[in-house]
Design a protein around this nucleic acid. Sequence first.
RNA 1: GUGGCUGUGGUGAAGUGGUUAACACGCCGGAUUGUGGCUCCGGUACUCGAGGGUUCGAUCCCCUCCAGUCACCCCA
Length: 421
Amino acid sequence: MEISAPRGTKDILPDSSGHWRYVEETAREVCRAFGYNEIRTPVFEHTELFLRGIGETTDIVQKEMYTFEDKGGRSITLRPENTAGTVRAYLEHKLYGESQPVKLYYIGPMFRYDKPQAGRFRQFHQFGIEAIGSPGPAVDVEIIIAAVEFFRRLGLKDLDLFVNSVGCPKCRPVYRARLQDALRDKLGEFCEDCRSRFERNPLRILDCKHEKCGQLSQGAPRMGDCLCDECRDHFAGLQALLAAAGVPYRLNPRLVRGLDYYTKTAFEIQYPPLGAQSAVCGGGRYDGLLAELGGDPTPAIGYAIGLERVLLALEKQNLLPPADKAIAVFVAAVGDQARAPAFRLAAELRRAGLACEMDYMNRGLKAQLKQANRYPARFVAIIGEDEAANDKVTLKNMQTGEQQLVDAGQVEQKIRAEMGD
RNA sequence: GUGGCUGUGGUGAAGUGGUUAACACGCCGGAUUGUGGCUCCGGUACUCGAGGGUUCGAUCCCCUCCAGUCACCCCA
């Protein structure tokens, strides 16, 4: 064995592709119920889109992007997330001409050059939704409820919803400055990471896992105390609606999003047993992004759900659906003369819409029955020399063990009659 | 990117510095001639992750690399 899949990528094999389909279908059903329509954008975009959209100073842009030059000399990047691409498509195709808000969802692979770990891959899949055009907070609550509903339908338990407001371009700089002022004289005592974050992204310091840093930032001003009137009202409205909808949530003033475009509402849904990669859903409002990408100022909000992590959570809670390989009929041929009639019967049954299998390994009858049993098959249609000569089929019900000789042309209706449909 | 742990057949897993590396599952075949799910029997491992080194000799000792995993980091 020499060639293997690139690091951080994974083959989804038949034994688990059914799980993926189940999760994706659940996502699509929820989107239909909430009025979100699918959008499919390219897996690669001009690098520039992400530089401007996600922010040049973010970790994603600085060290996690798959960027390359194509043969035309363009700088191309495999999408590390899909909000930027979705917004780009919204602007490019002038979806602002449709009734607002425009509600979109996507499911697909994303790419980040991270060090792989359980729940963290270089190619991973996200299901995300974006609502563009409404300032909220009603849509904010709607998309959160959509996420909650998605998890509810899957049966997942023990999820925690955290919400926060990260302010807007009016109040965040004010808060940022106040925070820096409060931390400045103690800066030397913070960890190395925090010291480097001080200028670049001081809000992250509040998120630091180091106990020392946590203590040092204890008395620091909180974003909540510095929100401008508009942001404060918005945040209050969000919480009122969440409460009205009966959605349990927790405030987390330290919740910060890693992408520059977020404003006001920020939220995250976690499943703690996943350990370090416990965030299964993360999102928030990005009122500044459309203008940043050259559009008219337009409010918007969205989130992304990591499907690998959802699958991990489902596995932990034993909620993955069992594989369903059951078929209606297995056509067993015995002897050379039976081969052609068996093929013909299988083709007819399949054309009639019955799931049908047969042997391709020249196995004996016993082995074919064993094979049929494995699927399992409801019926086995046995064709040997006698049957082939008389245009008959021995039809065996695998549950009762009963078998009868029937005309080859009547196999389908016999099966349908016995299956009761 | 930093640090810890792990790497034996398709899968789960024992094991030893030295002839034919357990076991279980799976898969294939058989248990009188064309009949399954149970049972029994048999079969199924060119490199014990890769490449070097130590040694008379290494799958078990050392180094490097690769991969997985956990924490940090980041995030979905």
